[in-house]
C-alpha cells in the first residue's frame, strides 16, 4: 500500500461548491421527479378508494382533488410524468449507445427541459379547453 497515490486522484465533486453541468441537473431531476410522483399516485388512489367507500369519504377526497392543493399536486405530477417519460426515453437511447458525447448530452438536456414544459402546457390547455 506504500505506493498508493493519495494526493493526485480525481475527486467526486463537492456538491455544495460545484456548479453542476446541465446534464447533471437533468439527471438528478429524473430521480427527483420519479420520487415526487408518489404524491400524485397516492392522491389519485385515495380518490378511487374513497369513491367505493362512502359519499362522505368521496366528498372529502374529491374536494382535495379539486382544491388548489390538488391542482398543484396534479399539475406538478403531470409535468413530472412528462419529464420522467422524456428522461426515460433518453436513458433508453444512452443504453443503446447514442447521445453519450458531452455536447449531445448538453443538447438533449435542454430538449428535455423545454420538451417537458411544452408538453405540460399543452396538456393543461387541452384539459381546460375540452
Amino acid at each position: 500500500m506504500a505506493d498508493v497515490n493519495r494526493g493526485n486522484r480525481p475527486l467526486s465533486p463537492h456538491l455544495q461548491v460545484y456548479r453542476l453541468p446541465i446534464a447533471a441537473i437533468t439527471s438528478i431531476m429524473t430521480r427527483i421527479t420519479g420520487h415526487a410522483l408518489v404524491a400524485g399516485i397516492v392522491l389519485i388512489t385515495w380518490w378511487l378508494v374513497a369513491a367505493v367507500t362512502s359519499p362522505g369519504a368521496f366528498a372529502c377526497a374529491d374536494w382535495v382533488m379539486r382544491s388548489w392543493l390538488g391542482f398543484i399536486i396534479l399539475t406538478g405530477s403531470m409535468w413530472s410524468l412528462w419529464y420522467h417519460l422524456l428522461a426515460g426515453l433518453r436513458h433508453l437511447a444512452y443504453d443503446a449507445g447514442y447521445g453519450l458525447e458531452i455536447e449531445e448530452a448538453r443538447k438533449s438536456s435542454q430538449a428535455l427541459i423545454a420538451g417537458s414544459v411544452v408538453l405540460a402546457v399543452l396538456t393543461l390547455i387541452i384539459f381546460f379547453a375540452f
Binding site: 388512489t45 385515495w46 378508494v49 369513491a51 367505493v52
Partner: peptide
Amino acid sequence: AVIAAAVYALARM
C-alpha cells in the same frame, strides 16, 4: 399497498 388499494377500488367499481 398502493397497488392493492387501486386494484381493490377498480374491482369494486
